[in-house]
Simulated scan of single mutants.
Amino acid sequence: MSDAARGATAARPTSVIFVTASRDWWGAEESVLTLACAARGRVRQTLLCRSEPLAARWVAEVGPSVVLARDNRRVQRAPRLQDMLWLLRNLRLLLSHDVVVLENFHLVIPGSLVKLAQRRGQRMVLDLHDKISTPRASRILRWFAPRMDAVISVSDYVAESLADLAVESATIYRPVRAPRQRTRRANAGRVVGIVGRVDPDKNHPLVIEAMSAAPRQLRLVIRGDRSDNRTPYRAEVQQLCARLLPDRHEIQGRVDPARAMEGLDILVVANAQEAMGRTVVEAQLAGVVAVVPDRGGAAELVEHLTTGVVYPAGDARGLAAALTWLSADAGLRAELTERAFRTASARHDPTAYARAYLSALTG
């Protein structure tokens, strides 16, 4: 890109296209929508996606500037090829915007197309909300990330995974819209929740084991659904709950995001490799105490005994002890939730986030 073209784009980008290959709705998709709502009127925004729920909400909350792209049935067994063909089919749309934001690191655009876009004065940005923990992901990023004009990471934990790749990254924590009212319960302290994908990396067995050693008045609620229907993990979680918590658990499946924290007193994160932990912020804004491991992105969102509770990652006994004394101390819970609400409201404010994000897009 020429210095003149780069300077013109950096000075005043007028259009951004967000590209996500996800076919489902998780925290990253919610963040894109929250950003777009907060950035309305500041820049022209378009969404290129595969998710019908995301497209419908974008139309309702942002506007009609969305393209819902279907998959090619003939290349279902070659997902990376399918991704590339998907991008090529929408090349004209991509080239019509000042900034292209890729929401998935595996959406590898051919180098020649990246150079073409940059010669035209466009900026290519990678929004990284996944922990890079596999050799394959590292190989993709080693080739792909240095060709981007900017990389934005969801946490310092994710940004650090790029250190070995010699890729610079700006950390911007994701925005979360505060609920209309915070949780208030008469029997506070008794309902412990796990919210999110029911996948092995979420480490539900650790929480179930900890709950089996906690006071019997504590009850576990699991909300979320599996992202891969081929895995038996959900059945394994059900069996473990039936064995260790026979009358003290409820697996509710997926719930409306607006109700994710409803009725919970304590939220537990067990994944020590969580990229950020959007549910932690949702809990803090809803008046639910967040309990997180001392490793991973979620640990960046909680200050121990100030805005939540931190326990040693992978330590079921330590988690059980934390749940025991936390559930018994109503005064501490009240202090934690109040301080957490103030901190999360400032750190994850969508309007402030939109300003920071749009600034990062220009470099």
Rank of each mutant, 00 (worst) to 15 (best):
A275L: 09
L33Q: 10
A344P: 06
A56E: 12
L107V: 05
D98H: 03
G193I: 00
Y311L: 03
V158M: 08
C49D: 12
N90C: 03
L95G: 00
L126N: 11
R219H: 15
N229V: 10
R147M: 13
V32D: 15
P179K: 02
L332N: 03
H106D: 15
G297V: 11
V289R: 01
G27A: 06
D127F: 15
V255H: 10
G193M: 01
K115R: 14
A320C: 06
R248F: 09
A178F: 13
S51C: 14
A163L: 08
G297C: 08
R182M: 11
L81G: 03
A321S: 13
L162D: 05
V221Q: 04
Q118E: 14
M148T: 10
V59I: 13
S96W: 08
A163W: 04
E303F: 10
L87F: 06
A5R: 13
A178T: 04
R230H: 07
Y233Q: 05
N203L: 04
H304I: 03
F144E: 01
R147T: 07
Q252M: 13
C37L: 13
R174A: 07
V43L: 02
A145H: 13
S31G: 12
D228M: 02
T171K: 05
T46G: 07
T362G: 11
L326P: 02
I140G: 00
P246S: 09
R182S: 11
L240Y: 02
F341G: 00
E303N: 07
G193V: 01
G193F: 01
L319M: 09
T34G: 02
D127Y: 15
T307C: 11
R248Y: 10
T46N: 08
Q76M: 12
E250T: 04
V309K: 10
S138F: 04
L107S: 08
N104H: 15
A117G: 14
L244G: 10
G189H: 06
R342A: 14
A78N: 10
A352V: 05
A166I: 02
S31N: 14
R74C: 06
A11Y: 05
L264M: 04
R190F: 03
H97Y: 00
R254G: 04
A166N: 13
D83T: 07
L87W: 02
Q45F: 10
A38P: 07
A10F: 06
V310P: 09
G193H: 02
V158P: 11
I152F: 12
W325E: 12
